[in-house]
Amino acid sequence: MKVQIRKATIEDASGIAKVHVRSWQETYQGIVSQDYLDSLKVDDRKPLWKKSLSESADTSPVFVAVNSEGEIVGFASFGKERSGNFDADGELYAIYILKEYQGMKLGMKLLLAGLEDLLKQDYEAMLVWVLADNESRKFYESLQPQKAGEEVVNIAGKKYLEVAYIWKNIKMLHQTTIEKL
C-alpha cells in the first residue's frame, strides 16, 4: 500500500477533518466517553481546518499522508509552543492516522516532514501533549523525550491526565527519526 507524505493545502481541510474525527473515534474508544466520540462531526471540524490551513500554513505546517486513491489517511500538525510554560519553542500539536494505516511508519514519516519544516524555521526544541491513557504515547516514548509535565484536561465533563514530553534538541530528534525509518 503506497502512501505519500506532502504538505497540506486548504483543499485538504475536508480530508483532514474526516481523519481527525475518525481517528479520535478509533483511538479514544474506551478512554473518552462514547457519547462524546459519537457526537464528533466532520462538518464541525472542517471550518477549523480551513482556517488553520489558510491563516498559518507557513508558520504552523500541516502534513498529510495520502493513499494511492488520493484519500488523506493521516496528518500531523506543528507550530509554535502554545503555553509558554516550557523550555521549547516548537510543538507537535497532533499526529492522527487511521487505524488501518497504522504500523506502516506513517507517524515517523509525518514527524520527519514536520521536523524538517521546523528546522528550516530555526526551531530548537519541541513539545507534545498526549493523554496518559493513549497507547500512542509509546510512539513518542520510543523517541526518548524528557517528561516535561502533566495536567488534567476536561473532555466532555470528564477529567483526563495529559502528559507533556519535550525534546530539547530537534536536530537530534530529526536524526533519531531518520534512523527509525
Results as ranks from 00 to 15, higher is better:
118 L>Y: 04
142 S>F: 09
126 M>V: 11
132 A>T: 08
118 L>I: 03
112 L>Q: 08
114 G>E: 05
139 F>E: 05
131 L>V: 12
140 Y>H: 10
129 W>I: 10
142 S>Y: 08
147 K>W: 04
138 K>R: 15
142 S>T: 08
121 Q>K: 14
124 E>Y: 05
121 Q>V: 03
142 S>G: 09
133 D>V: 00
145 P>S: 11
146 Q>D: 14
113 A>H: 00
134 N>A: 01
120 K>L: 15
143 L>H: 04
135 E>W: 11
119 L>Y: 06
147 K>E: 14
110 L>G: 02
123 Y>K: 15
118 L>S: 09
133 D>H: 01
125 A>V: 11
116 E>C: 10
116 E>G: 15
110 L>K: 03
130 V>L: 04
139 F>D: 05
114 G>C: 06
131 L>D: 12
131 L>Q: 11
143 L>S: 01
112 L>P: 00
138 K>G: 10
119 L>K: 10
111 L>E: 04
138 K>Q: 14
144 Q>W: 09
147 K>A: 09
128 V>S: 10
142 S>A: 14
127 L>E: 02
128 V>K: 09
118 L>H: 03
124 E>H: 09
145 P>I: 07
141 E>I: 11
130 V>N: 02
112 L>T: 02
130 V>S: 01
115 L>M: 13
120 K>S: 14
119 L>I: 15
144 Q>M: 12
127 L>C: 00
110 L>Y: 02
116 E>K: 15
127 L>F: 01
119 L>T: 05
126 M>N: 00
121 Q>N: 08
111 L>F: 07
110 L>P: 01
122 D>L: 13
120 K>Y: 08
112 L>A: 06
136 S>H: 13
114 G>I: 03
121 Q>D: 11
143 L>I: 03
115 L>Q: 06
137 R>H: 04
133 D>E: 12
146 Q>I: 13
121 Q>E: 06
122 D>Y: 15
120 K>F: 08
138 K>S: 14
126 M>W: 00
141 E>F: 07
141 E>S: 08
139 F>R: 06
140 Y>E: 12
135 E>L: 13
128 V>Q: 11
139 F>T: 06
143 L>C: 01
120 K>Q: 15
125 A>D: 11
139 F>C: 05
133 D>W: 00
120 K>V: 10
114 G>A: 07
116 E>A: 13
144 Q>P: 00
130 V>D: 01
123 Y>L: 08
114 G>M: 04
124 E>R: 12
144 Q>D: 14
117 D>F: 07
110 L>M: 06
146 Q>T: 12
122 D>Q: 15
128 V>R: 11
123 Y>S: 09
114 G>V: 04
110 L>D: 01
117 D>R: 12
118 L>A: 12
132 A>G: 03
139 F>G: 04
121 Q>S: 11
113 A>W: 00
134 N>L: 05
126 M>F: 00
110 L>H: 02
146 Q>P: 02
113 A>Q: 00
137 R>A: 06
127 L>M: 02
121 Q>I: 02
132 A>I: 03
142 S>K: 13
146 Q>W: 04
135 E>S: 14
146 Q>S: 15
142 S>M: 10
115 L>G: 07
131 L>S: 11
